[in-house]
Amino acid sequence: MFEDFQFFVEVLISGLLTGILYSLVAIGFVLIYKASNVFNFAQGAMVLFAATTLVGISGFGLNIWFSALLTIPVMALLAYLVEILILRRMVNSTPISMFMATIGLSFVLLGLTQLIWGSGVHLLEFGLPSGQFIVGDVFINQFDLSVAAICAILVAGLVIFFQHTKVGLSLRAVAEDHQAAVSVGVSLSKVWVIVWFIAGIVCLVTGMVWGAKLGVQPALNLIALKALPVIVLGGLTSIPGAIVGGLIIGASEKLFEVFLGSAFGGATESWVPYVVAILFLLVKPSGLFGSTQIGRI
C-alpha cells in the first residue's frame, strides 16, 4: 500500500513537471489571445520554428547561447511579418476566420522550418542537469526541476515586464479594451508586434526546453498542441490559468495512462487531455480563471 502511494506520488510529480512544459506553450497562447484576440493555432509551429532555427544556427559551429541570442531577432522579424501581413488585415474578421488564418500560418511555418532546416531530429544540449535526487522515498528528475525553475523565472520576468514598464502598461490597456486603448493613443500595431515577439521568445524558451527533453523534431508541433486543452481548461485570458491548467493536464494524462491506460490499450495521452478539458468546460464554460460575460443584446 505504502509503495503504491509512493509510486503514485512519483507519477504525479512527473506529470506535474510535464505539465509545466504545456504551461510554457499555453502562456504564449494566452499572451497573444489577450492582446490581439487571436486564438493562435500556430503556437506549436512557432515553438518548432524557434527551436529549429536555434539548432540550425548553432549548426554553423556557434555556441548554443549565442545561437539563442541570434534567434531572438528572427522571432522579432516573424512577429513583424505576422503583424503587417496578417493581423492588420484581420481587424474586422470573425474570430473563426482569424483562427483559420492561424492554421494557414502554422502550415507556412512548418513548411519553412522543414524547407530550411530539414525534417530530421536534432539534439539540443545546453547543460540542463540530468541526474535524479531523492526526497523522502520519491525520485525526482533534476531536469524536470530545472524546467520548473525556468518556467518560474520566465513568468516572473513577464510579470515584471507587464507590471512595471510603459510598454507593459499599454499591453495591459489593449488587453482590457482595444478601442479605449486606441483612443488614448496606444498604437495597436506596435502592441501586436511586441506581444507576438514576446510570445516568440516564450516559444524559443519552450522549444529549447522541449528540444533538450525530446530532441528538436517536427513532432514537437503536435505535442505543443496539448497546450490547447490547457488554455481551454485554464480560461483563454489567464496566465495563472495557463499554469494551473498545464499542471492539471500534465498530471491527469500521466495518472490516467499509468493507472488506467493499460485497460484502454495504452498511449491514451493523445486524447485524455482534451477529454478532461472538454468535460471541465461543459461544467464551467469560461474555464478555471476565465471571465464570465453577461450576454448583452
Partner: peptide
C-alpha cells in the same frame, strides 16, 4: 512537400483575409 505546405498555408491566409 515543404513548399506545398507553405503554398497551401499562404493560400488559406489569402482566402480567409
Amino acid at each position: 512537400s515543404s513548399l506545398e505546405q507553405i503554398f497551401f498555408g499562404v493560400l488559406v491566409i489569402y482566402f480567409v483575409l
